[in-house]
């Protein structure tokens, strides 16, 4: 639990922590029980949790920037879609092929690209996302272009498939929890410390004998793997993929979730994914002003909790100390 201690550094056990988790629990239980469309919202939030957790390993832990992780989600999603819907594979081996494809792609692209720094790296990753999008549009014999691939079977192994909404919700909760726990494990490991060291100061890390370029590449590949898994989960959860699913809005969405939740923290991706998914739904009744309300809420969060929602307990503790 070491890493959780650092995350909730000064805020463990205080009211804000409990309130935050309590609200999340109430929302999950309510959604589960009511069975309304919020189940779909929560399902997407959990899939995004996996994606953003991966992004967090590269951006939060390792301090790099990627605008191109939608590419890896697309590789995972399309592998699952094509291999199951067109060639009748089982979801698991299809997903593994997607995972391997994303890892290979991350290795081939990351090796030269990660030598770039700052804006150049960001631009290069943005290009990866655009290229994969174009391939998904143009390679019609496989991807069917903008028509997309429909009729993707639900997730399952052999005869056991998850067809109910609640079953899928539980499955995705487990997937998201595993993503968070594995990220916590990585952060605590030797590998995780090397990532954070590279984020802190590349020169200092290199002076200590840490091969920064290599660890940046490893972080890039690990985060690509999370993105590929998220893409596969999406394909099976919705039963449909098309290029637009993995477009730039996915990048914008995952960035918002990462920063609102708390970049570099463990719980941040989950908090961000849930809040960012639920927030627009709460404002749906505002109709044309939905985006306005949503934007305003985001600004409020980022002003009062600039390090994300995961830092709220810490802020709360500081406020208590000040007023005491």
């Amino acid at each position: 639990m070491n890493s959780f201690n650092t995350i909730w550094a000064n805020g463990r056990g205080n009211l804000a922590t409990w309130l935050l988790w309590g609200l999340a629990a109430v929302f999950v239980v309510y959604t589960f029980a009511s069975g309304g469309y919020l189940i779909a919202v929560l399902q997407f939030a959990l899939i995004y949790t996996v994606l953003v957790t991966g992004l967090n390993i590269f951006m939060g832990f390792t301090g790099q920037v990627s605008f191109g992780h939608n590419a890896f989600a697309a590789i995972g999603g399309y592998s699952s879609a094509v291999l199951t819907a067109t060639y009748g594979w089982e979801p698991l081996p299809a997903g593994l092929v997607g995972l391997a494809g994303a890892l290979l792609c991350a290795l081939v692209i990351g090796y030269p690209v990660l030598r770039l720094r700052g804006h150049y790296l960001a631009m290069a990753t943005l290009a990866i996302g655009l290229i994969v999008y174009e391939v998904a549009v143009q390679w019609q014999s496989v991807t069917q272009g903008y028509m997309g691939i429909s009729g993707i079977a639900p997730i399952g192994i052999g005869r056991f498939t998850i067809t109910s909404d609640r079953g899928l919700l539980v499955f995705l909760m487990i997937a998201a929890a595993l993503a968070l726990l594995s990220a916590a494990g990585i952060r605590r490991s030797r590998l995780g410390r090397a990532f954070v060291a590279a984020a802190g100061s590349e020169d200092a890390a290199r002076a200590l004998g840490i091969d920064v370029a290599r660890y940046k590449l490893i972080a890039f590949m690990i985060s690509a793997a999370y993105a590929a898994i998220a893409g596969s989960l999406f394909a099976h959860a919705v039963g449909f993929v098309s290029p637009e699913v993995f477009g730039l809005p996915m990048v914008v969405m995952s960035f918002t979730m990462l920063y609102v939740g708390g970049i570099g923290t463990i719980a941040g991706p989950a908090l961000g994914a849930i809040i960012i998914s639920v927030l627009p739904e709460s404002f749906r009744t505002f109709k044309d002003y939905q985006d306005l309300a949503y934007g305003a809420a985001l600004i409020v969060i980022l002003i009062y909790a600039p390090r994300g929602l995961a830092s709220l307990p810490e802020l709360w503790a500081r406020w208590r100390r000040r007023s005491a």
Binding site: T6, R190, R193, A194, V196, A197, A199, G200, S201, D203, A204, A205, A207, L208, I210, G264
Partner: peptide, 16 residues
């Protein structure tokens, strides 16, 4: 100094 601010003192030493 190049210390890694977000990490604990123990983690910094481990990285050494």
């Amino acid at each position: 100094r190049g210390i890694f601010a977000p990490m604990t003192v123990a983690e910094n030493l481990e990285l050494g």
